[in-house]
């Protein structure tokens, strides 16, 4: 079975599954920490509208987990805040 990693953990997925669906199937419900109040976030609408399920994929932040297709070998990581903390001045 094809897999990707989430914060270093191996996540299996079936062809056609989104990153979000695969994470839920693996029992993971939260993959973002909000920039205000550090609250946990995961899937909310699940159809690409609400932007609550943002996650960092291969270093690129703000990807919608519900829309991003799972792919073999990608590295998915918990997104903290805007995901662009490196740009802060």
């Amino acid at each position: 079975m094809a897999t990707f990693t989430f914060d270093g953990r191996t996540i299996p997925f079936r062809p056609g599954q989104s990153v979000g669906a695969a994470l839920i199937a693996a029992g993971i419900y939260s993959w973002r920490v909000t920039r205000v109040g550090a609250r946990p976030r995961g899937l909310f609408c699940g159809i690409g509208v609400c932007f609550d399920c943002l996650v960092t994929i291969d270093g690129a932040p703000n990807q919608r987990a519900c829309r991003a297709p799972a792919a073999d070998g990608i590295s998915v990581t918990t997104q903290r805040g805007t995901g662009h903390d490196d740009l802060a001045v």
């Binding site: 703000n62 805040g81 805007t82 662009h84 903390d85 740009l87 802060a88 001045v89």
Partner: peptide
Amino acid sequence: TEPLPHVVR
């Protein structure tokens, strides 16, 4: 843009 940390003063 998407929300960012303080990037432009």
